[in-house]
Design a protein around this nucleic acid. Structure first.
Lengths: 326, 326
DNA sequence: TTGAAAGCGGTACCAT
DNA sequence: ATGGTACCGCTTTCAA
């Protein structure tokens, strides 16, 4: 202990606590001694009395552009808010997420933010019981006691359908992945609902994981048969980009003349010259900010308000959809 | 404290310490009580006696594909090794990195891994003095006492030049960004060295940050004048992809007939059908594994060996370079 | 095998 | 404003 500054430990503590009363003189002595000894307050020892200030991020597939972007916003903002961000990189299955969530308990995290995968309800309950705040991002299945922040999939699905119809597409398809995450399922369901309301029939295609490769493979298979679609809503930009590449390079299809494509996420790559994908942007940074707000303002809003914040996706008009029928 | 299990705290501790001697009976009692009370060992309180098990990752530009990939490997492997991974998302300037590094001291991190930016030498020294291990990734400037892991930029630069020459390129260029990170500078320098050895003159272009957009803008400017290059080594895939898009779409250049391009990193996107970029892969996962090894085996290797591990980049042959002169 | 007690690095309360 | 002290949750000697 740095009390070779010739003062008590209390004085040291007060020096590093803002709003405590220390004379300028002792303060200086302490600061000097600290400098000499290379002393730094141990933030984790503080945690023995108060909150730990730790926020755990449970995430999988960090390399996926959307995920990386979300992780970026979140870590930035958490850090700005003075939180300690621990990231738990898991698989997205329930067991892995469960293990990760259990770890957060050992770290005495004040809060856990789940970016991917869904923990079992019982595990969440124990986290909650341990005084932890649990925030789920883009999980449409609400769990009791969790706070949710996500994007409005219904709007995007409806608008996507509108765009394809306005373009005069006659055989509309929906491409999704075999990985059924809540938000993907929601986009699918809302797209079908909207189509049904208009008496349209949609062809559904599910292919592998949510990757570029899956989109590519899907197109390879779809255009190898008769009755291929001329307008497709891909539930993810990554799928859309792969789909577009295969349609163009393997089948010589022109976008948007022969085929219209709508994506979702607005990842960087969607704006690249080779793609110019029309898509919907998730306001990730605003969502991240909201998460931090949720952590900071303890119970400012009524609990019903907190339970679910849904952000409106913003359409990004580029060139993969015609503005009129061909 | 869970001694309503009817045992001492010592017993509880021993139950959760492997290799401690507890009778099966007490063990059971403790476990039951823990279950009932929802008790979880506080890993951060442990740290008051021993090592904290915390590893800090200092990183900027998380959305950049290489960075995200590295972060992914690292977090995965650290977690597998039982480490607690705290990520500090900073800007890459020295001041930000410095602030981040200072934070790691407050968290009593056992080690800090710097993925981007370079901390000042003095700050590193205080971290070292506090018993922290500091590992720098892809910083060619060696700092005293740090361990380094990186990729061999010299080989890649030489090989890139070879590829372009074999393709018969006559006006060879080098595209880099204005952000002079050590590894970018190294690639540039080695490329020039190699060219000089062969008596070749290279045209150098620096453009903005290390992004797709910069590559795009660079091409726009370069092909707007006479004497444009017919073979370019882009120090980063992202630059190469932007460059390729502008060359193709704005100038109708055919790749590789009219223009040969070599990148570096082998990000996912480089393999996409629209690009098929010939590039060099950084063995990120092996590098990540090495980092974890460095953390685990305390002083297994001689300190000179540890000081710098350089991995050989592996060439990824695709279609952006001709195999013979046109 | 078990329990008592000391100490890890802090902060907060209570006197002074 | 300052110092003394108890306590946060856990591990580790040391005796029993």
């Amino acid at each position: 202990m740095a009390e070779r500054a010739g003062v008590s430990r209390s004085a040291v503590s007060r020096t590093f606590t803002d709003g405590a009363s220390v004379s300028e003189e002792t303060r200086k002595k302490v600061l000097e001694a600290a400098e000499a000894l290379g002393y730094h307050v141990n933030h984790l020892a503080r945690q023995l009395r108060e909150r730990s200030n730790i926020v755990c991020l449970i995430v999988s597939d960090v390399t996926t552009p959307v995920r990386a972007a979300l992780l970026d916003s979140l870590t930035r903002r958490l850090q700005a808010a003075g939180k300690i961000t621990v990231v738990l990189n898991t698989e997205s299955d329930e067991a892995s997420v469960g293990r990760a969530l259990k770890l957060t308990l050992h770290y005495r995290a004040d809060a856990t933010v789940v970016l991917s995968g869904t923990p079992s309800s019982s595990l969440v309950q124990t986290a909650l019981a341990n005084g932890q705040q649990v925030i789920l991002i883009n999980r449409d299945d609400r769990l009791d006691g969790c706070e949710n922040v996500g994007v409005d999939n219904a709007i995007a699905a409806r608008e996507a359908l509108f765009l394809l119809r306005r373009a005069g597409c006659e055989r509309i398809g929906l491409l999704t992945s075999a990985a059924s995450t809540p938000s993907l399922i929601a986009r699918e369901r809302h797209f079908f609902d909207a189509a049904e309301r208009e008496g349209l029939s949609i062809s559904l295609w599910k292919e592998g994981p949510t990757t570029y490769r899956s989109g590519y493979d899907a197109a390879l298979k779809m255009f190898a048969r008769s009755q291929a679609p001329d307008g497709v809503f891909c539930v993810t930009d990554l799928l859309a980009l792969g789909f577009m590449d295969a349609a163009r390079h393997a089948f010589g299809l022109r976008i948007p003349q022969d085929l219209c494509l709508v994506g979702f996420d607005n990842i960087e790559e969607a704006g690249w010259q080779s793609y110019q994908l029309t898509t919907f942007e998730q306001p990730l940074d605003r969502m991240a900010r909201h998460v931090v707000d949720l952590l900071s303002l303890p119970e400012a809003l009524g609990s019903s308000d907190r339970a679910a914040a849904v952000f409106e996706p913003v359409p990004i008009w580029r060139q993969s959809v015609r503005s009129h029928p061909a």
